[in-house]
Amino acid sequence: MITIYPLEWIDSLILLTLNPNKSNIGNLSQSDLVFITENLSRESHKIQIQLKNEIFALQKKRQIRLLVRKYHSTLVYLLDNIIENQNNEILKDGIFFRITESIIDTLDDLLYFVENRYPNYLNLDERVPLPYLLVSRKEILLKIGRLSKKKTAINDVNRVIQIIVDALTVSNQINAGNKITYREVLYQKELLKKVEMQLAIESKSNFYSLLDELLIEVNFNDSFYISHVIEKVENHLKSQETLAGKIGELLFCYKEFSQLSSSERIAFDPSKQNISFMLENWFRHEIKYLERKKELSVDVDENNAATESMQMGEDKVECTLSTDQMALILRAGDESRVLKARSMSLVFKTIVPFLSTPFKKNLSYQSVRSKSYNAEDRDKEIAIQTLKKIIEKIKSY
């Protein structure tokens, strides 16, 4: 049975050695202070190993839960005491201040280890004590400042970084009316750690950047970030001129988004819905809207085409010549360059739809053009006589 108290050295250091009410801190030698500084890292490593060994030896979840919570509450208690000790004048300056800061950092690392490795055995929805909150905020704000200086070659990624910085800065503004839980503090620490790691390998991927994929995965449901994703999609759709093109690109963006995972256990803002739910809802409504708009557009185009066709039918010019005779005159007009177009086919295509005969209302320009190559002598004579009649008429003017 394990009877060793793993926190014994650091406990004694905080509650006795560096406690101005129980010892004369000024009697500590330079070698004592150097030893304390060097031993902190070793002790932290030993405590983590001891905790893992103790948990590994247990089989019941209830026992593990009690052990994890015991470690966690003791670390919070020690953190509270070292911060209180810092109020003493002798610990506010020089090497003593640096030692107390090192102890605070060590305790913070141990708390992060417990919270991150064994979150299922802790009540992360408890309100954090003020000393713990102050230390955590100091660490988070330091990392936020470091993140705000990060710049990449991708403008969209830089914009997302600024959104993260702004969201976390606002979240960490001191407001006594807010209940800050361990879960929220742990989320922000883990988010900053993952973002920093992601930026080290950030590169252009698909429509969504690797940073987007991370934020969607950890359910970063900040309203400004969600608006940014929507704006990003809308700007992408502007490159498409047709509704069909916009719908196609929107479906592509939705497909890419649907393939990204998003946690339902964690959230940046627990009071809001999951980022996946909100964006999927937007995609579905936007696709439905564009598809309906396209349907209405098709209806309008069909009505306009029908109206145009009716008007064309009503506005046709009736020619007393047959289609064969009409074809000869148009062909002659093209080949004599009286009528000029890119091709003879274009001459027929442009003129014939507006002509009719006493026997036929709608003429096919292809049919009329083909007849210009197979005209009978009688049709040629009638065409010539018609042109002579026109010549005589012009002479009479």
Score class of each variant (00 low, 15 high):
E190N: 14
E190D: 15
L191E: 06
L191F: 09
L192E: 04
L192G: 08
L192N: 03
K193V: 02
K193H: 02
K193C: 01
K194L: 13
K194Y: 09
K194D: 11
K194I: 10
K194Q: 12
V195M: 01
V195K: 05
E196W: 06
M197K: 13
M197E: 15
M197Q: 14
M197F: 09
Q198E: 07
Q198S: 09
L199M: 04
L199K: 03
L199H: 02
A200C: 13
A200D: 12
A200G: 13
I201C: 07
I201R: 08
I201M: 10
I201V: 10
I201S: 09
I201W: 06
E202C: 09
E202Y: 06
E202K: 03
E202F: 02
E202I: 09
E202M: 06
S203I: 08
S203F: 03
K204R: 15
S205E: 13
S205D: 13
N206L: 11
N206M: 10
N206E: 14
N206A: 13
N206I: 08
F207L: 09
F207C: 05
F207W: 04
Y208D: 03
Y208K: 08
Y208I: 04
Y208V: 02
Y208Q: 04
S209C: 07
S209E: 06
S209F: 01
S209V: 02
L210E: 14
L210S: 14
L210M: 12
L210I: 07
L211V: 02
D212M: 07
E213Q: 15
E213D: 15
E213N: 15
E213T: 15
L214V: 07
L214K: 02
L214T: 04
L214G: 02
L215R: 11
L215P: 08
L215F: 14
I216K: 10
I216D: 09
I216S: 09
E217D: 15
E217V: 07
V218F: 12
V218M: 14
V218Q: 13
V218H: 12
V218R: 15
V218K: 14
V218L: 12
V218I: 15
N219R: 11
N219H: 14
N219C: 13
N219I: 13
N219D: 15
F220R: 01
F220H: 00
F220S: 01
N221I: 01
N221R: 06
N221E: 04
N221D: 02
